[in-house]
Design a protein around this nucleic acid. Sequence first.
DNA 1: ATTCTTGTTTGTCTAGGACAAAGTGCTATA
DNA 2: TATAGCACTTTGTCCTAGACAAACAAGAAT
Lengths: 312, 312
Amino acid sequence: MEKPAAVAATIDEVSRDVGVGKDSLRVWERRYGFPQPIRGSNGERLYPDEQLERLRSISRLLDQGYRPGKVMALSVEQLDVLSAQLATGASVEAESSDNAVIAQMIAAVRSGRVDQFSGSLEQMLDRQGARQFILETAVPLLVQTGKAWACGQLSIYMEHLITQHVRAALNTAANSIDQSVTGPKVLLTTLPGERHGMGLLMVDLLLRAEGVETLSLGVETPIDQIIEACTDLQPQALALAFSAVQKRTAVIAALKELSDKIPEPLVLLAGGEGVSKLRAIPPRIRIVKSLDTINKVVASLRRDLKDVSAVG
Amino acid sequence: MEKPAAVAATIDEVSRDVGVGKDSLRVWERRYGFPQPIRGSNGERLYPDEQLERLRSISRLLDQGYRPGKVMALSVEQLDVLSAQLATGASVEAESSDNAVIAQMIAAVRSGRVDQFSGSLEQMLDRQGARQFILETAVPLLVQTGKAWACGQLSIYMEHLITQHVRAALNTAANSIDQSVTGPKVLLTTLPGERHGMGLLMVDLLLRAEGVETLSLGVETPIDQIIEACTDLQPQALALAFSAVQKRTAVIAALKELSDKIPEPLVLLAGGEGVSKLRAIPPRIRIVKSLDTINKVVASLRRDLKDVSAVG
DNA sequence: ATTCTTGTTTGTCTAGGACAAAGTGCTATA
DNA sequence: TATAGCACTTTGTCCTAGACAAACAAGAAT
């Protein structure tokens, strides 16, 4: 085993890889003394593999709620200890209820039995149907996967693999829904900066399982484009998905702008972790706290629709 | 029509929206005098709607090959003239061959007949089958959509809508492929920074239509993770997709690293616009120039596989 | 008609300073 | 015993202005 050729990554590559802004990388160096990249011929930072690895560990812990000041000075070993603590904490919780199946599926991926994993997924989908599959298999699976990754028990590529297979399964489910187009029309998307499309896809499916006609724009639609789409396509509702990464003030500002600029009868729905614990919610915005309340939301939409047509 | 409430976007929002780096926005201001945002209470840049609009036009033209020094000083009217010129240029080319159907589909979206558009898509898929649908409908449709967007003839949200429906159609196609798992195993992904997943999805489908067992990691897998995945999963080949946006030097460096670190018998495939006109290609990397040559690549993989098993 | 050379354009890097939003912890109130 | 208010600390992102390499353009020489 020769040592890898000590290739060093640029700040741009590191920023993308670890998921931390370039400014943050520089200010961490200034404040905490880590990372301390070597310099190229023109003074550019070049991060050695070893520091990159440590940065990845740190970033994982930051996602779990630790703060930079606490973890930045720690050695790789100490970081691993913290990860391990999180791992035991998570596994206690994992013993609950029926997620033995899910633990088994993750274990299959970890030991390289990918086809067995995807087989289990399809089997669950067959058995449970779209709605139950999403709520009781897909979501818990992704949550557990996230936890396992945060604890360093799962490689990034395994997380990618799991995500891809879940996505494929959801698409399979989408094709098996018989569209009886009798419901309201809902426009779906996320705001710029929100790149996670999985939640959106699940909402899309759940809505269609309820007989709703969905129109998805995919992720990251600029606000003015959302408004234009609402004007052109005249949906009954607009649904936005938020993951946990979002900045609160930006989210609220965006929701306020939508609430101001979108013509009145249209219902504005917002859901996802990034929005479920907001305080000051602009008027007209309806927060959907959980995926399993979507059927109630749809019922409410149907009622509104009937009222309007009764009046008109 | 009252004027919009003169809300102004921050540099971060503008950067994401227009797709231009923050540093570039600042240096454009310094060099060309545009944009010239107003300043907030602490000196932060706040870009008025009007400048944002102009930035979007400029960015479109930059994508088409114009250079900042030429277009930055131009007024909105002059920018529109350039866009119009591109539009006529494009339409001349569009008259060729059989893409009348495609023009019609785009026209349907423009006039709000979305269900008609998606109906046509499904119909084409039924008629053509996966392979032909991708090569003769999906790709030309996306290319034409890109051009129409570049000329300002298509809103961004319409492009999103088209992309989403094509994606859905491809997933439908994926489910209709009868997997006779007799072929080689291929690992699929893109490098960090490459966020376009459509090409990847199409390659995935084409490979599976040829009987290949594909394993997709989705987009943006870090290089060390790609290597780890290759070691763990032991595919016959690794396929990487590149769109046109990539930086050449970074692409070459990444390919070289993969070529160095990935164990020998594995075949390295690279495809997409971002890679088709590269000069200095690292050894072992095989460039796939076009989607319709994938069947030949598969044939070659099959041959290699047979040779190895004959020897072993 | 191609390759080489020179000059110009353009994106991204650097440094250190600044400030608001988010988090932490203490105190006073129902 | 909780909850709300208030100061204090931490942390991410923005600012300015300078520098340089990669990408491009255009002319020269094969």
